[in-house]
């Protein structure tokens, strides 16, 4: 993969909370692909994604999105460039309806809101019947669909998904990963997905990186990830 094809370049990243580093020396690049970040609970996946979305402070290193250094940007500026973030929890605005949640995401872009909403329905058809429901009344799976749909409404070109299937039933998990696969190809969006569910993530990912004990492995093709390496990362 050539340098210019990189959607995201992360170099020497150190991040954490209150001056304490959770992750250090993280380097990777993401192209037009699905890039999976695997790791056990507490490995720093959420911290990494929140940092890439510029919600967490960057203690060292650089983050470059499509050639623009976003290290000094705030979250809303990064989002303006086309970085969409779907958090693991509290990903919807509970007092707003599903339709309003989608509309909140529609601030950027040239296409009409209606056109974008219709596109979201093609990936998550179940939402069509729930448009006027308050998002706070939705199930966990439906909430994730709303959050993901809202990120697509932003005309995102890089989608950061933080454990999108955590706590969901197997049916929702496979439905969601199928939607991710379709989004990748039909919208041509680069996707970074942090997951504990390695089996499902590896099913859709082109490349993968494993987080363990505050460090990141070198990125590799999903097919190259051995069971031994995974067991080591998950400390099994």
């Amino acid at each position: 993969m050539s340098e210019t094809a990189n959607v995201l370049e992360v170099s020497g990243l150190r991040t954490g909370y209150d001056g304490i580093a959770v992750l250090d020396g993280v380097d990777f690049t993401v192209g037009e692909e699905v890039f999976a970040i695997l790791g056990a609970n507490g490995a720093g996946k959420t911290t990494l994604l929140a940092t890439l979305a510029r919600l967490n402070p960057l203690m060292a290193g650089t983050v470059t999105f499509r050639g623009t250094d976003t290290s000094g940007l705030r979250a809303h500026q990064s989002a303006g460039l086309g970085v969409g973030y779907v958090p693991q929890e509290r990903g919807v605005f509970p007092d707003l309806t599903v339709m309003d949640n989608l509309r909140v995401g529609g601030m950027f872009g040239n296409r009409s809101l209606q056109e974008r909403v219709e596109e979201v329905f093609t990936f998550f058809p179940d939402l069509k019947r729930k448009l006027n429901l308050r998002a706070g009344t939705l199930s966990g799976g439906e909430s994730r669909m709303v959050a993901c749909g809202r990120a697509l409404m932003q005309e995102t070109t890089l989608l950061l998904l933080d454990e999108p299937t955590a706590g969901l039933s197997p049916l929702y998990v496979s439905t969601f990963f199928e939607a991710i696969r379709r989004i990748r190809f039909e919208r041509q969006v680069a996707i970074v997905v942090a997951e504990q569910n390695a089996t499902q993530a590896l099913g859709v990912a082109d490349r993968v990186m494993v987080l363990s004990l505050g460090r990141a492995s070198a990125a590799m093709a999903a097919s190259e990830l051995t069971t031994e390496r995974l067991k080591h990362a998950y400390q099994i």
Binding site: A53, L55, R74, A75, H76, Q77, A79, G80, Y85, P87, R90, G91, F93, P94, D95, L96, D100, R103, V104, G105, M107, F108, R150, A151, Q154
Partner: peptide, 18 residues
């Protein structure tokens, strides 16, 4: 809508470019 979004979840609203 934006005010409610900010009131519900400020970081999330930020991450959406608000």
């Amino acid at each position: 809508r934006l005010l409610i979004a900010i009131g519900s979840n400020e970081p999330l609203a930020r991450s959406l470019g608000k």
